[in-house]
Amino acid sequence: MMLKIENLHAQIGDNEILRGVNLEVAAGEVHAIMGPNGSGKSTLANVLAGHEAYGITGTVRFEDEDLLALSPEDRAAAGLFLAFQHPVEIPGVGNLYFLRMAFNSVRRRRGLEELDVMGFLALAQERMKLVEMDRSFMSRSVNEGFSGGEKKRNEILQMTILEPKLAILDETDSGLDIDALRIVAGGVNALRRPDRAMIVITHHQRLLDYIVPDRVHVMAGGRIVRSGDKDLALELEEHGYADLGLEVASDRSASVGATP
């Protein structure tokens, strides 16, 4: 099993956000996670990527390693990648410089050869073509002044450059126009391989037409309350979350947002 999450809890202060998540993702699979606003999807993604704001219990094994014991940078080197729902702007740090630094840091830790400026530029340009991103974005500061869609493309660009084993896409489709959605899905599909896996967090069944999932999960109140195949997404699209008969009705957070 590439990723095995058991009884994962996460809290901030007294607020328990994840309340016992269980999830297994095998190599080669694509899993979609859907669920109401505030149900804990991004929190799960952040916890997996190593965000330090949460108090955490439970276990997460990534390729038989204790993921929770690793620093965020070690998780990246181990092959985990999170495309953020809200990528931060970093004024003063050039995009190209950052990308090369990230690439070489990861390569170094993976014991692979680093690339010099010219070598990296060639790679970056090839990957930029894949996500149809203009060169001019390379000379700008990381995400600074990027439109919502441009930020998402920059996330996918980073993913194609870092070549992770497990990519988590947190609402990468939100805020994308139809063309951008196709391009982003193309970038994702280009990365699909039997030894790679993906977790796609989304509110829209539409994305799943492009990136067809093996499993679909519904998260509510900090737990995965329902799992099924790709038809579950269609069902949700039609009936919303209200009809699911969520077994977390007593939970405060389950009542937060019934509409996606």
Binding site: F98, A102, S105
Partner: peptide, 20 residues
């Protein structure tokens, strides 16, 4: 966190943001 999640080590990420 963003920089570290991309593999940039903690100290280097701090230095990068400080320089920025």
């Amino acid at each position: 966190f963003y920089l570290r999640s991309r593999g940039v080590p903690y100290e280097a990420a701090r230095a990068l943001l400080t320089y920025a």
